[in-house]
Write a protein that binds this DNA or RNA. Structure first.
Lengths: 251, 251
DNA sequence: CGCTGTCTTGAGAGTCCTCAACCGTGGTGG
DNA sequence: CCACCACGGTTGAGGACTCTCAAGACAGCG
C-alpha cells in the first residue's frame, strides 16, 4: 500500500473534484459513454430525469479504495470509465481479486447490509454513485431496471463459476491464457490487448504469484503465442492456440 | 460415471415416479418443506394457486444429472429436499463443483439461453421445476418474487467471491476448515455435521484431490479438532480453532 | 542522479499431486 | 453361505508445479 489513498472526488465537492478531474461534470445520462451498455439502458430517454436526480458522478484516482470490505453498504456504483479491482483479503494480507469492473459494469450487488468485498481504482476511474435508498426507489418505479439488474447478476454468477473452474482446476498456463482471452473480449476482440493492471493484480486475480505470472508470459512469448505491443499492451499471435490452451486442451 | 444415470421422475409420469418415490405428490406449495426458506416465500398464501399451476414436482435419484452444461436453459429448479451438486467440467474430465444446493436453494439463474453449468443429485433429491416462460410470467406478476430472486442472486454472488478467495488463496487445511464451517452453518450450527457427498465431491469443490482431502481430515482428527460421528458425519471438537483456521489465521 | 516501483530471471524449497497398495463395506451370484 | 467384485476411503512414496527468496534490469520521477 504505497499511496496514501487519495480521497474520493464527487460532484458534491466541486473544488476538490477540480483538483483531480480538471472540471466537474454534472451527470448527463443521455450522453453518457456507458448509456447503451450499462444497467441504465433499461430506462427510457424520457425517464432519464429521474435517473439524473438519483445519481452523483465521481472521479476516483488510481489506488483509491472507494469500497471497503465489511463497511456498511450505503452506495452502489456504475463504472463509466477506467478499470476497478474488486477483491477480498485474508487477515495476513493474502488477496484475491474477484473481478475487474470496466465501463458499463455495476458494482455493489450485495443484498446484505454490508459490502462483502473491497473495490479499488486500477487507473483513473469515473463512476456514477446511487444511494441504496434511491436505488431501491428506482427499482420500485422501473421494473425493467430491476429485470436488467437480475440479468446482470445472473451473468456475473456464470462468470463467477468460470472463475471457480479456473482457480480450482486450471494450470498456471491455462489461467493466463484464459485471462488473455477474457481481456481480448473486453478490448473488442482485436489481437492487441490492454493490460491496465500490474502483474501483482493479475496474480491476485488468477491465484498465482507475480513471478509465476511473469514466467508464464515469458514462456508464451518464447513459444510465439504472444508479443509485446507497447508498455502495457500485448499482442496475441495465435488466437486459436491460445483459446485451446485456455479451454484446458493444453499443448 | 458408473451408474447409467437413471432418468428423471416427475409428477407427469406417475408410474415411473412411483418406482422412486413410492407415491406421487401433487405440488402442495402451502405445506411445502421449503415454503419459508425458498424464493416462494415471496408469494402470499392467497396467490399460491398461481404458483402451484406453474410448478412440476420432481424426484431425482442420486447420480442423476438433470441439468447438462451447455444445454438449452428451458427450466429452473427449486430444491426442496436432498443435496444437488453444481459443477463445471474441462474437456479432459477435470471437474470443479461450484456449489452444493440444498433445500430452499434456487437453481438456474442463468440469464443466458443455455445453462452454464451441470447439476447432479448427490443423494435423493426433490425439486420443483419451473419452465422458463412460466417463471418469466411469475416475475411479471409478482414483483416481490423478482425482488427476492435478485436478493438470492446477490447473496450467491457474495458466496462466489468467498469461494474465489478460498480457491485462489487458501491452503488445503484452510479450505477444509472453511468447508466444515460452511457445512456446520447449513446443518443448524450443531457440532455434528452431515457430509452427504463423497471425498471426490469435496475435493472437486475445494480444488483439491481426494487424497489431500482425506489426509487433511486425518490430520485434523489427529490434532483433536475433529472426530467421527457416524459413517457420513463428523463432529467438530473445537469450533473456535476451526473458525480461526478457516479465516486463514493458521496454526 | 538516486530513488522507488515494476518486471524479469534464477535457485531452492514446499505443498500438493500422482501413482500405488491396502482396508472395509455392501451388493451379487455361484 | 460365502467368495467375489465394485466402490469409497486411507495411507505411503516419489515427483511436479508453483511458491519463496533473492538479485538484477529498467522506467518514471523527484
Amino acid at each position: 500500500m504505497p499511496e496514501p489513498a487519495p480521497s474520493i472526488q464527487t460532484t458534491g465537492s466541486p473544488s476538490a473534484a477540480r483538483a483531480w478531474h480538471g472540471r466537474c461534470d454534472a451527470p448527463d445520462c443521455l450522453h453518457c459513454e456507458s448509456r447503451s451498455t450499462s444497467v441504465c439502458s433499461a430506462i427510457d430517454d424520457a425517464d432519464l430525469g429521474r435517473l439524473v436526480s438519483s445519481v452523483v458522478r465521481m472521479t476516483v484516482p488510481p489506488g483509491c479504495e472507494f469500497v471497503e470490505d465489511g463497511a456498511e453498504a450505503t452506495d452502489f456504483f456504475n463504472v463509466t470509465r477506467g478499470t476497478v479491482k474488486l477483491f477480498k483479503l485474508l487477515p495476513d494480507g493474502r488477496r484475491q481479486i474477484t473481478g475487474f469492473a470496466g465501463p458499463g459494469d455495476f458494482i455493489g450487488l450485495a443484498g446484505a447490509q454490508t459490502y462483502g468485498f473491497g473495490a479499488e481504482a486500477a487507473d483513473l476511474v469515473s463512476l456514477c454513485r446511487f444511494s441504496r435508498r434511491r436505488l431501491t426507489r428506482l427499482l420500485d418505479d422501473f421494473p425493467a431496471f430491476e429485470r436488467r439488474l437480475l440479468a446482470e447478476a445472473s451473468a456475473e454468477l456464470i462468470a463467477a463459476q468460470n472463475r471457480m473452474l479456473l482457480l480450482g482446476r486450471k494450470t498456471a498456463r491455462e489461467r493466463v491464457a484464459t485471462f488473455l482471452m477474457e481481456r481480448m473480449a473486453r478490448c473488442g476482440n482485436g489481437a492487441d490487448i490492454a493490460l491496465p493492471m500490474t502483474r501483482a493484480d493479475i496474480g491476485d486475480y488468477l491465484g498465482l504469484t507475480i513471478e509465476t505470472v511473469s514466467r508464464t508470459f515469458s514462456a508464451l512469448r518464447k513459444e510465439g503465442l504472444l508479443a509485446d505491443a507497447g508498455p502495457r499492451d500485448v499482442r496475441v499471435l495465435s488466437v486459436p492456440r491460445l483459446r485451446r490452451m485456455a479451454e484446458g486442451e493444453d499443448l
